[in-house]
């Protein structure tokens, strides 16, 4: 991208989300100046008033699609982006707000808002990839800033970014951690979850929350069965899988008998 001497143009877009993922870019304090020198930050409303028009070399898209307006906007963004990268659990799986997908959204709107008439929303919260083709996903709630920097560095160098899709366990074991599931009987989503966070929670003796979503060939069903063996009630198991990435099919299918549409 930088082979012709021009800096790649980067844009950051936001849909239904908490902003935590795009903040990861601003949070990359040590690298931020180098990033700003190496790329042109063309559109990033959270960081700059400058809002340059497309096309963009990389569009980083945060958040899930929850309104008619979102659903149209993402189409325009896709047309403007050479490479579209979704960042974070909302964009890659629908996020925690996808819990609405199992319930009656209209009823929730009536319960939550004083004037429900002002609310115009879709019945579901869905990941970006259900609307437009996505070139790469950075997982996590929030994403790991090192993975974001790696994406930018790799793009500049013209190489494939090192974004593993295997299990968190490999990362955890390379750190030399004790497996808290085997040694402590703690339900841990690590064996079904994609690596990339650096095994933060198991390193602090907490089970993985699965915020990086399902790994490749995720066998969530077998892991869920083992949670039952460890003494979890069925609803506890369901809550474990139905969180940030609950709508991602490999997690969702554990509790849904219907075949994938």
């Amino acid at each position: 991208m930088s082979s012709n001497g021009t800096r790649p143009r980067i844009a950051v877009f936001k849909f239904a989300s908490c902003d935590g993922c795009q903040l990861s870019l601003l949070d990359a304090e040590d690298e931020l100046l180098a990033v700003a020198e190496a790329v042109e930050i063309a559109y990033f409303p959270e960081a700059s008033r400058r809002m340059a028009k497309g096309p963009y070399d990389i569009a980083l898209v945060e958040g899930s699609i929850t309104t008619h307006h979102d659903a149209e906007a993402i189409q325009r963004i896709r047309r403007q982006a050479k490479t579209l990268v979704t960042i974070g659990a909302c964009a890659t799986a629908g996020g925690i707000q996808a819990l609405r997908n199992w319930h009656d959204t209209a009823e929730w709107v009536r319960l939550v808002y004083a004037k429900p008439d002002f609310i115009s929303t879709l019945k579901t919260s869905t990941p970006i990839a259900e609307h437009v083709p996505v070139d790469l996903e950075l997982r996590g709630c929030p994403i790991n800033k090192h993975q974001l920097i790696e994406l930018i560095s790799a793009t500049l160098a013209g190489r494939k970014p090192n974004i593993p899709t295997y299990s968190l366990c490999l990362e955890c074991k390379r750190r030399g951690n004790t497996c808290i599931m085997v040694a402590g009987g703690v339900p841990c989503l690590g064996p079904a979850t994609q690596a990339g966070c650096g095994a933060i929670c198991p390193s602090m003796n907490r089970g993985c929350y699965g915020c990086f979503g399902p790994m490749e060939n995720s066998n969530a069903h077998s892991l869920a069965s083992q949670f039952r063996v460890l003494g979890c009630a069925r609803d506890e198991v369901e809550r474990a899988f139905r969180s940030y990435n609950g709508w991602a099919w490999p997690f969702r299918r554990v509790f849904e008998e219907v075949p994938r549409s």
Partner: peptide
């Protein structure tokens, strides 16, 4: 689970991968 715990704890599994890293 294809999680790779067995190969990680196996005292003879020796396979490695290589990763290139570049600065910005």
């Amino acid at each position: 689970l294809a999680c790779g715990n067995c190969t990680s704890v196996c005292p003879t599994c020796f396979c490695v991968n290589y990763e290139d890293r570049t600065s910005i």
